[in-house]
Computed example of a mutant assay.
Amino acid sequence: MQFEINAKKRDLQGSSASRRLRRDGRVPGIVYGAPGAPQSIDIDHNELFQALRKEAFHSSVVTLNIEGEKQMALLRDVQAHAYKAIVLHVDFQRVDATHKVHQKVPLHFINADIAPGVKTQGGMISHVMTEVDVKCLPGDLPAFIEVDLKDMSSGHSIHVSQLPLPKGVEVVHHGEGDPVVATLLVKGGKADEEAEAPAAEAAAAPAEKK
């Protein structure tokens, strides 16, 4: 999915100027990163708000049309009102088509209802991870990665190394081992030991520091 957001250059700075923009239905923001200097911008609130409601917008390369000048960028930060549906500020980072980028991409789980562990063994799928950090060229960045659960059965887990990555995309994860993405919880039993291990280690860590 391709997204294009229209923006205007913003010259006035400060909280007073930002409040005036918001009263006029505009969202103050900034686009930064090579090859140019940081540029303050403002965007129509409704246009941005509707785009933010789409999951793919958060993990896609966006075309920023700044008064006719188009730049490729990634959404990096969104500040929203604590309880109102109002976007207060937005940050974008420019990207170069020839340089790889890091971006978190959501995982879409499918076929859980036909997995043997769910359908015949009374189990339940546990999503240990809901997104992964990937590295690739901007043109190869996927909006999501699909995880097929149709073969999940008792004692079975899916690991990061088993994810079906598009060509040119690699997963970046910190630490050792091969993290669990999803595992099967047996009804009345316990989680797969591989999924429990990280949680057990995290719980024990504070005690070791005392």
Results as ranks from 00 to 15, higher is better:
Q2A: 10
N6K: 14
N6V: 06
D11E: 14
D11G: 10
L12P: 03
Q13T: 11
G14M: 05
S16K: 10
S16M: 13
S18N: 11
L21W: 07
R22A: 15
R22E: 07
D24L: 14
G29H: 07
G29C: 09
V31C: 00
A34M: 05
P35F: 12
A37S: 13
P38A: 07
I41L: 06
L48F: 03
F49R: 15
F49Y: 15
Q50F: 15
Q50P: 09
F57Q: 06
F57W: 04
S59Y: 09
K70D: 02
M72G: 06
L75P: 04
D77V: 10
V78G: 02
A80F: 12
L88V: 00
D91V: 04
F92D: 05
Q93P: 11
V95A: 09
D96E: 14
A97Y: 05
A97R: 14
T98G: 11
K100I: 11
V101T: 10
Q103W: 06
V105R: 06
V105A: 06
V105L: 04
H108P: 07
H108F: 08
F109L: 05
D113V: 08
I114Q: 12
G117T: 05
Q121N: 11
G122N: 10
M124Q: 14
M124R: 13
M124V: 12
I125F: 10
S126A: 11
H127E: 05
V128F: 04
T130K: 10
E131I: 13
E131V: 11
L141K: 07
P142Q: 02
A143N: 08
I145F: 00
E146P: 03
E146M: 08
D148W: 06
D148C: 06
L149E: 00
L149I: 01
D151R: 00
S153E: 09
G155V: 01
G155H: 02
H156Q: 11
Q162K: 01
Q162I: 01
P166W: 01
G168W: 09
G168I: 12
E170I: 06
V171I: 10
H173D: 02
H174S: 09
G175R: 03
G175V: 01
G175E: 01
E176Q: 04
G177C: 02
V180K: 03
V181I: 13
L185G: 03
L185K: 05
V186L: 12
G189I: 13
A191V: 14
D192V: 09
E196Y: 06
A199F: 04
E201N: 13
A204W: 09
A207F: 15
